[in-house]
Design a protein around this nucleic acid. Structure first.
Lengths: 211, 211
DNA sequence: ATTATCTATAGATCTATAGATAATGC
DNA sequence: ATTATCTATAGATCTATAGATAATGC
């Protein structure tokens, strides 16, 4: 344990590398990610990277952590400011689509990309991605269940199915946006969930308006 | 122009290579696809591949064609045997999910994988994928429009939104199935679309039953 | 079609060193 | 004040493999 200054230098590098690697991973793929690229983009040496992570796989796992932290910060946390119930579920959908739309990551969604990339490659990375996806679906399902329990949505609505619906519309949006046009795709994704929620709403007037 | 025998031999090789390359592309990615792998898997030399396609990119484009032909054969054509209207839209959803479920391609869906892989890589391949996706969405939209025009679905239903809904549920299914369990995921994708169609059906009793 | 070969680049490892601090002797 | 030590990083290098090409045989 030494002074703060020394710890900070290594920590700053670490964060800078993870930021860059996350960004590049959404373009080239988590596996297509090359240490050369990361090192060059940051102006550090490739071997400097090995000082922080002993292997490419170790870096990839760190990138997954980093992506999760970013997702929590930028998508989940802001939505939690909305009151529990259907408004919160809707807020998550909106903040997620906004995350894509703002181009925070050039490749759109780190997790969607990675899950498609690794869907047929067993191993440590795929296992980690499965955990992340499980956590996310659990979160969405809980939001949907809350919306029903609080009386915003009718009891016939199924939380797991609502979660699946929400996730579907979000994933499809980030897939189609760069190829089919951003404005219309995200608009479609918003209207589709709003329409769906309206069909199950106990009182449609409480639902947020689509701009 | 030579004898049929020679033409046939070349054609057989060509098809065998494309089958193998398509399969491997869904595992390693269309870009992660390596000519070494393809050549080894087929017991031919790598330079033999260059005799058929002058570059890796040319092979990748041929693989896209091949994947489209397979999709038409195995997903679209069987569904077209159903009568036009909501039954046909439903049949496309089912035959698509069956295609995934049977594991025809180890990586699930060639097109979904490739679209996520190339969503941030401009170039010839991405442009081709955009065309394919456009054609597919046009097809789904036409099916939905038919279902409304024929009176199966109420006029308030929006064809483009129905197409988007259908596509969403299919894409999400193939993303989640390998990581979240196949049976429950595909079941969810089927029930979700059926539920959605029922909400817009003029006469719910005409709708197919979920097994 | 094959064999041999070329160039570029991947991940990985080794050795060296800059800059800072800790331990030691005066 | 000097020496030893620690942390973070650079440069050189290794092996494997990528896509690609030229020469050759059938």
């Amino acid at each position: 344990m030494t002074t703060d200054g020394r710890l900070l230098r290594g920590e700053r590098t670490r964060t800078a590398v993870l930021d860059q690697a996350l960004l590049l991973a959404t373009v080239a793929g988590l596996d297509g990610l090359s240490l050369n690229q990361v090192a060059d983009a940051l102006g550090v040496s490739k071997s400097g990277l090995f000082a922080h992570w002993r292997s490419k796989e170790a870096l990839q796992l760190a990138v997954i952590d980093h992506a999760r932290a970013q997702w929590t910060d930028r998508v989940i946390r802001p939505a939690l400011r909305e009151p529990a119930g259907v408004r919160r579920l809707w807020a998550v959908h909106l903040s997620r689509l906004r995350f894509y739309e703002e181009g925070v990551l050039p490749g759109g969604c780190f997790f969607a990309n990675a899950q498609f990339e690794f869907n047929a490659r067993p191993g440590v990375i795929r296992d980690r991605l499965a955990v992340e996806m499980g956590d996310w679906m659990t979160f969405l399902t809980r939001l949907a269940a809350d919306a029903i329990a609080l009386g915003d949505l009718r009891p016939e609505a199924d939380p797991a199915r609502l979660a699946y619906q929400t996730e579907s519309l979000g994933v499809c949006a980030v897939m189609q946006a760069p190829l089919m046009g951003s404005a219309s795709t995200f608009g479609q994704a918003r209207r589709a969930l709003l329409e769906h929620l309206l069909l199950f709403a106990t009182d449609p007037t409480t639902l947020p308006e689509l701009t």
